[in-house]
Design a protein around this nucleic acid. Structure first.
Lengths: 225, 225
DNA sequence: CTCTTGAATAAGTACTACCTTTGAGCTTCA
DNA sequence: TGAAGCTCAAAGGTAGTACTTATTCAAGAG
């Protein structure tokens, strides 16, 4: 995937840390990594600097590179999210992210109702309609579902919400891949998406928030099983 | 603050990008930076790799280092948050973060009611009481307020919420520093904090969520003025 | 026997010089 | 005109060297 050497190193070490192969407190040394991966010091250090930026490790003189405990990690870094989802605590991670979704999306919907441009509102309605017409094809459904939620977050006019689009993408993709979805999307869920779109178009914050809250509580209940 | 040279470079370039001094599309070249900051290439490249990890820039051969548009930035990186708050769009950023809080904290409170350990619940109550007894001293109040919200997020048992403690910290600190707080905390707000703590201790998710929602809607309204 | 001092040393930090690779843009030629 | 190929600037990567600091541990003082 990543082209450069530091990137490749990162893709080796990062997941190893996140999955606990290098547990917190473990110490790496640049020289070891140089030999282990047959790369020069420059490459090792550049990779390390990135891991440090993600707060996965901390580098100290005379000690080495120490793996930090999980509480320090930048859990919102897209790569960390990906690595955790690919790793062993996938289920746990999916739960965390779903809870995050369930908190943010209703509020984002309310804001979108107040701030969405007519174009955004129109496109949102289109996507909701497409959702309804692709309940038979899970893959196509997923694409539209992701587009719908991404657009909604963008329409909220809040940078921070907008960025969570990747999280939603990961969650939706993840739960379809691991068959945590019902084989056919529930008609009630689809109806609620349409309602969200309508409410946003009508500028009705309360209704948009309510409908979205209904969607995410349903998702949360599905997950509990 | 930061000790190493790459770190210092970062603290120069990062804020410059975030505040728009280097606008999206602008091109930096390693050699220029070397000369401008009187450091070696190694240092420049390490700093650049970190900026790249934050998705503030993208480095391409034969082109140089291009500043990316804001939509690409990792807005959840603590440093990016700090730089934006120190920069020109402080007010805008504070609004975004407050909206994020208003979305997450009520849900975190509900989860905390279900998952908090007795110790956490006890400590939460303590902090609420301390809040009540320090309404006369804004600084002391701030310290307890931050501790209260951080603990609540931690007690939610969700990594992603827990990490937002820094955001809450930044928001609360920011609004006191910029005098967006009433000179004396409202007694109603304090009462609600106590109610949240009680509800968490009692395991009453709905009440905890409701009380927290009341707190954040109040905050949002204060901000609108 | 404890506490301070200071030397040894290990590991990250930083600089330099040199080579390789890639891709944007120009040139050439069918 | 447009596709193939050339050029060269800028990033990518390697190797070697020197520096800086924490840690560690032992010697000496109180």
């Amino acid at each position: 995937m990543t082209s450069g050497l530091p990137g490749r190193l990162l893709d080796d070490i990062g997941p190893a840390i996140v999955t606990g192969k290098y547990p917190p407190g473990a110490v790496l040394r640049t020289e070891e990594l140089e030999r282990a991966f047959q790369v020069s010091r420059t490459v090792v250090r550049e990779a390390l600097r990135v891991l440090e930026a993600m707060r996965l490790v901390s580098s100290r003189r005379r000690v080495g590179i120490t793996v930090l405990p999980r509480v320090d990690w930048n859990l919102y870094d897209p790569r960390v999210i990906r690595w955790r989802l690919d790793g062993s605590d996938r289920a746990d991670q999916l739960r965390s992210l779903t809870e995050l979704r369930s908190a943010t999306e209703p509020v984002a919907a309310a804001l979108a109702a107040a701030r969405a441009t007519p174009e955004q509102a129109g496109r949102l309605t289109e996507l909701a309609v497409q959702l309804r017409s692709t309940t038979h094809d899970l893959d196509a459904f997923l694409v539209h579902d992701i587009a719908f939620h991404r657009l909604l977050l963008a329409a909220s006019g809040n940078d921070m919400f907008c960025q969570l689009g990747d999280v939603v993408d990961a969650v939706l993709t993840g739960r379809t891949q691991h068959h945590l979805m019902p084989p056919r999307p529930k008609t009630e869920a689809v109806r609620l998406h349409v309602e969200v779109a309508e409410a946003v178009a009508a500028g009705d914050s309360a209704r948009a928030e309510g409908a979205m809250r209904a969607i995410v509580t349903e998702v949360m209940e599905d997950l509990r099983k």
